[in-house]
């Protein structure tokens, strides 16, 4: 049976679908957070070099991956909105930005807390750290630019351009540890394999999945409010049970 995906690109159908999906994503995220943190703190062994401090990895790495990936998803939606003038794409980009910014903040914060005991400094102007900080500023710039323009469609177009241009920063973050000599370590997990203990890998990937599901749940909840706000003059919004009650 073929699914007509374009049907769900309309706010009218997406609004209801998102409402049904949010509890599933939220519950799965909470469950996976608990499982991931249990494995990370109770099962995974102590690191030979870093001791207990390495356990920051279970939130630092997922937050960093999410901050970069969410930016690309946001830029993708912004580009779709700009090219095809689709309403929902721009709304999705707007909904993703705050969550991406928070993940970038968590990545920088936990990185600083990891850096202090390992490097002896909360912050260094290293290529990886600096480019991640720029990512946070790009998210904040996107949010501020969108909020500063009254007309939502014009705000969508202006902030879409910023999102698209800013996406060049994501590969810079990813490859910074290869292109430059940095204090930040390179990738521990490579296509060729890893030296990480299996319990450490499990904890990290489970928390990564939990962060993904959390981000999806929060973005869907936020985009529902944006749809309500922007489509408030339409008949279908006024016919919704939650509006009529």
């Amino acid at each position: 049976m073929a699914i007509n995906w374009f049907k769900y690109s309309a706010p009218t159908t997406f609004y209801g679908l998102a409402g049904k999906l949010i509890p599933w994503f939220a519950f799965s995220a909470a469950l996976l957070f608990v499982i991931g943190l249990y494995i990370g703190f109770a099962v995974a062994p102590v690191d030979a070099q870093q001791g207990e401090f390495y356990r920051i990895i279970f939130i630092h790495v997922p937050a960093s991956i999410l901050s970069m990936f969410l930016y690309l998803v946001m830029a993708g939606y912004a580009a779709l909105g700009l090219i095809f003038n689709t309403r929902l794409s721009a709304m999705m980009a707007t909904a993703i930005a705050p969550t991406g910014a928070l993940f970038a903040f968590i990545s920088l914060w936990t990185g600083a807390l990891w850096g202090k005991p390992m490097w002896g400094a909360w912050w260094v102007w290293d290529a990886r750290l600096t480019s991640e900080l720029i990512l946070l500023f790009l998210y904040l710039g996107f949010i501020a630019l969108h909020a500063s323009i009254d007309d939502p469609r014009r705000a969508d177009r202006a902030s879409a351009l910023l999102a698209i241009v800013g996406s060049v920063n994501v590969p810079i973050i990813y490859f910074s540890v290869k292109w430059w000599n940095t204090l930040h370590q390179g990738s521990t997990i490579k296509y060729t394999g890893t030296s990480m203990h299996v319990a450490m890998q499990q904890a990290m990937f489970i928390v990564l999945l939990a962060c993904w599901l959390y981000a999806i749940a929060v973005v869907l909840a936020r985009v529902r409010s944006i749809i309500l706000e922007r489509e408030r003059n339409t008949v279908w919004i006024n016919e919704l049970p939650e509006v009529r009650s």
Binding site: F41, I56, T110, L113
Partner: peptide, 12 residues
Amino acid sequence: LTYVWLGSYAVA
């Protein structure tokens, strides 16, 4: 462990 929990996970 307290440093890791309070500093990173509690904040997150």
